[in-house]
Design a protein around this nucleic acid. Structure first.
Length: 894
RNA sequence: GGGCGAAUAGCUCAGCAGGCCAGAGCGCCUCCCUUACAAGGAGGAGGUCACAGGUUCGAGUCCUGUUUCGCCCACCA
């Protein structure tokens, strides 16, 4: 085995790339090479990153979490499979490519569909390589041989198959409906792609003239007062609605109004949808440009007038305003209405403006022909799966949000007027007849059957919503619709880990599509993480200049530091504030692991052979203590992993490695090794505990742990690498609660002595004398004398065990029933010493009183669990012993 | 308008089996380059766990209400 040849600081840059390549070359990311290849699988489908940009902290977080789960289950012996891949990200990618074309002085329209798609593929090739490289950099242990892309051949086939099946089930239909139109993107978008922002706007009040009357006759006779936030839509009005019970207007129901400027006659109708208290209590109805009005229009059989072109300029239906942009038209029309005496007033008004999730342009609701998925039945399936517990959402509170969304789900608009994406598999005959088919040939055959002869067909120009293909991801990546071995073996997957922000976009749709197409849930657990923000909780953005680039962080502090920070800083479903300070602190943690290992390795003789775990019969107090603590940590960490409380699992491992193993166990080993006192057991325990701890830490900080584990000696037959080594199991033989308690008391005594040394400003190097009255622990403390003298800097020649001297000048420390006397002659002021002891006594007595009160309470004794009562009794006894000692000492000093 | 989350040390946060004196990192104070580590070690200061009630033998933890901040959903022109 290599010995003590490690540099004194951990150089992650020299390790990470080499280890990653080594793991991958050995095939350890593949489920076929797990310790138990035929065993139960554990599967995660990666949330496929877009091929548009580069890595951000959101990616880093999901990789850290998913790799953590994969590595944990791999070590636990599951056939772990993490399926990687990337998403074509329709709109996002198309926008990027268009921007690039614009910079080159050309455009999508100028180069045409074919060339544009070639540009998109070139873009994809470039950015795919980059993003995948970055995922590797994060240590993602995915099976790259199974990598997929949403537009690769197989997945495209899956998309077509899904579309055709849905269509033939009658769940996909084409229709003229009001949709969210993005004039900038020139496409329809679905409801979830619209974001509403509060903005300052204006509420415009005006007069709707009544046919056959004069405006002078006033409200309710000459005109109906109406308020709107979008005056230009007046040009598309096809009715004015009032509430049927509204005394102000009910007599007007059935009469006719005239659209301002255009003078087009429209009816006055009644509908209970109208809120009498809002605005003027009368509502203009524009079925062509408002979703609510569209519904009302349907109820009343109103005409739909479309006044807008696809680029948000007004069309010929807008009369004199045709050709104007929507906002220009708004101003013109309003000015003209003012001139015509139709304007009442303008009021400032806060409105909620619909904007495109991509691009941020104001969405115009307008009527157009689109493809929709009828999600009614699928939503019921998806609801049942979660309600029944077949799918569990973590944290649980998102269940309610999920349920509410599905219960109110409207049909899903899936067609996009883009070029980059899956082309809709629908072809049109010369008369517009539609043929949905898996291929042009199949469509041609259908058409021939329909028309009785071969006819030219034209494919639908639209592509599918990018989330349509994402919805198939967990099974399409495993080979669906074919009956592939991977699909049989690895589906359903286990955990879907992703951000809560795409619960609706993606998770709900995967569940719906999965249940419909595979008759099974796509995964049994949904783990939702939050957003990564800056250290003060602000969103990371270039304008704030607060973006923490994961690549730069990894360059500076290493991958492990970043991963550990993300993992211990996050709790399920909650946002996480990331700070460089914390990453730096965790870089130091990696270094701590490194140096603790250096110490262990440096103390192993060249001929050291590590055959098995240390013999429980040969252990001394510190060994029993550290092994006992290790058992607790193994149990806690494992339990926390199973409960998805990864952050706490990481923190406990950290605390153990640093606070217990390094700070106390290693320090306690030094004098024993130096004195060659049970050195064999010490070495074995050091190696064993370190080995076990590296295993616990590996899912969090895979690189430094693997590197060090390779340097540790192992028994014959051990796994070739930590990544495929076994997860620790608690060993009852190492349970030593009593022995552990003895060492804990020794720690307290050492701390008390160190404390008083600082308080009295004893020079750090000076060895002092001490008398220790250790009661029942005397034998143990005598055995640990070298540890005590080293850690507390006591002169071994001047350490005695026995009763405290009656009247000597010095400091007395009382730790439970243990007393320590330090003859710090010349340093101690007698009065100050009395004061210190009195203060401690007062504190002790007050705690005694609290404990007595509890124990005297019959309800407590009767109802509290036995171990809690026993604990209270023991605490009280210790406090009493402490108080007795304190009083004795005070009496001596009096 | 509905729903959800957060409120704990100067800052950022843990504390999700209700049970010893409430923890961490960073920052701050004192001291130390002791042969694993100064990216370190030792000691220390600092908290009415937002507020008010309630349940319980016992509440930072469970329940109700209030306040402040944040988020999500919703068709009020």
């Amino acid at each position: 085995m290599p010995r003590f040849d490690l540099p004194s600081t951990y150089d992650f840059a020299a390790v990470e790339q080499r280890l990653y390549r080594w793991w991958e070359e050995n095939g350890w990311f593949k489920p076929e090479n797990s310790r138990n290849p035929a065993g139960k699988p554990f599967v995660i489908s990666i949330p496929p990153p877009n091929v548009t940009g580069s890595l951000h902290q959101g990616h880093a977080l999901f990789v850290a979490l998913e790799d953590l789960m994969i590595r944990y289950h791999r070590m636990r012996g599951r056939a772990a499979l993490w399926v990687p891949g990337t998403d074509h990200a329709g709109i996002a990618t198309q926008l990027q490519v268009e921007r690039k074309l614009q910079e080159e002085g050309t455009s999508r329209e100028a180069i045409g569909r074919e060339r544009f798609l070639a540009e998109c593929w070139a873009w994809k090739e470039k950015y795919h390589g980059r993003i995948v490289g970055q995922l590797r950099r994060l240590g993602a242990s995915c099976d790259w041989d199974r990598e997929r892309f949403t537009m690769d051949e197989g997945l495209s086939r899956a998309v077509t198959e899904a579309f055709v099946r849905l269509y033939r089930m009658g769940l996909i239909y084409q229709g003229e409906y009001i949709v969210n139109w993005s004039p900038g993107l020139q496409t329809a978008v679905s409801d979830v792609e619209v974001e509403y922002t509060e903005e300052q706007g204006t509420l415009y009040y005006f007069k709707y003239p009544i046919a056959g009357h004069s405006l002078d006759e006033g409200p309710g006779r000459g005109y109906i007062p109406v308020a709107t936030t979008r005056p230009e839509t007046i040009l598309g009005d096809t009715a004015v609605a009032v509430h049927p019970d509204d005394e102000r207007y009910r007599h007007l129901i059935g009469s006719t109004c005239l659209v301002p400027i255009l003078n087009r006659p429209i009816p006055v109708i009644h509908d209970t949808y109208v809120d009498r208290a809002f605005g003027t209590g009368a509502l203009k109805i524009t079925p062509g440009h408002d979703p609510n009005d569209f519904e009302i229009g349907r109820r009343h059989g109103l005409m739909v007038i479309n006044i807008m072109n696809k680029d948000a300029t007004l069309n010929e239906n807008a009369g004199p305003y045709a050709g104007l942009d929507r906002f220009t038209a708004r101003e013109r029309l309003w000015a003209d209405m003012a001139a015509a005496g139709l304007v009442i007033k303008e009021e400032p008004y806060t409105l909620s403006v619909p904007r495109a999730q991509r691009g941020g342009e104001i969405i115009e609701p307008l009527v157009s022909r689109q493809w929709f998925v009828n999600t009614d039945a699928m939503a019921q399936l998806a609801l049942a799966a979660v309600r029944s517990g077949r799918i569990k959402i973590i944290p649980e509170r998102f269940t309610k949000i999920y349920v509410h969304w599905l219960e109110n789900l409207r049909h899903w608009c899936i067609s996009r007027q883009l070029w980059w994406g899956h082309r809709i598999p629908a072809w049109y005959g010369p008369d517009g007849q539609v043929f949905v088919a898996r291929s042009q040939a199949e469509a041609a055959a259908l058409a021939q059957e329909h028309y009785g002869q071969a006819v030219p067909l034209e494919q639908d120009p639209d592509v599918l919503d990018t989330w349509f293909s994402s919805g198939l991801w967990p099974f399409s990546t495993l080979g669906w619709p074919d009956d592939m071995p991977d699909l049989r073996r690895f589906y359903p997957t286990d955990v879907m880990e992703t951000g809560y922000d795409i619960l609706f976009f993606w998770v709900a749709r995967m569940i719906m599509m999965g249940l419909l197409f595979t008759n099974d849930v796509p995964f049994h657990t949904v783990y939702l993480h939050g957003l990564v923000r800056d250290e003060h909780g602000r969103k990371m953005s270039k304008t704030f200049n607060n973006v923490i680039d994961p690549i730069e962080v990894m360059d500076q502090y290493g991958t492990d530091a970043l991963r550990f920070t993300l993992l211990t800083g996050s709790t399920p479903g909650n946002d996480l504030n990331l700070s460089l300070e914390r990453i730096r602190a965790n870089r130091n943690f990696a270094n701590k692991i490194w140096n603790a290992t250096r110490f262990v390795l440096g103390n192993l003789p060249d001929d050291f052979r590590y055959d098995a775990a240390p013999d429980p019969a040969a252990l001394s107090w510190p060994d029993r203590w550290v092994l006992h603590r290790l058992q607790e940590v193994i149990e806690n960490v494992t339990r926390l992993f199973e409960n998805y409380q990864f952050g706490e699992a990481g923190r406990q491992s950290y605390e153990f490695l640093w606070g217990d193993f390094a700070d106390w166990y290693i320090e306690a080993c030094k004098p024993r090794l130096q004195a060659d006192q049970d050195a064999d057991v010490v070495r074995q325990t050091l190696v064993y505990v370190l080995d076990q701890t590296l295993r616990l830490l590996h899912p969090f900080v895979p690189f430094v742990t693997e590197e060090l584990w390779q340097h540790l000696p192992h028994p014959p037959g051990e796994a070739p690498a930590l990544i495929v080594a076994a997860w620790p199991e608690p060993n009852p033989a190492y349970r030593h609660p009593e022995a552990a308690a003895v060492f804990e008391r020794l720690r307290e005594v050492v701390r008390a002595i160190r404390n008083v040394r600082t308080e009295y400003q004893v020079e750090p190097g000076r060895r002092i004398a001490a008398v220790i009255a250790a009661g029942n622990d005397t034998a143990a403390f005598e055995a640990m004398a070298p540890i005590l003298t080293t850690l507390a800097r006591i002169d071994p020649a001047q350490l005695t065990f026995g009763p405290l001297p009656g009247d000597a000048k010095g400091v007395t420390l009382v730790v439970g029933e243990i007393g320590v006397f330090l003859p710090l002659a010349g340093l101690v002021d007698l009065e100050a010493e009395r004061e210190r002891l009195r203060k401690q006594l007062a504190e002790t007595e007050s705690r005694m009183a609290a404990n007595r009160a509890r124990l005297h309470n019959p309800d407590f004794v009767a109802k509290a669990p036995a171990h809690v009562v026993a604990q209270a009794q023991q605490t009280l006894a210790e406090l009493e012993a402490q108080a007795t000692r304190l009083r004795e000492r005070l009496a001596t000093l009096a």
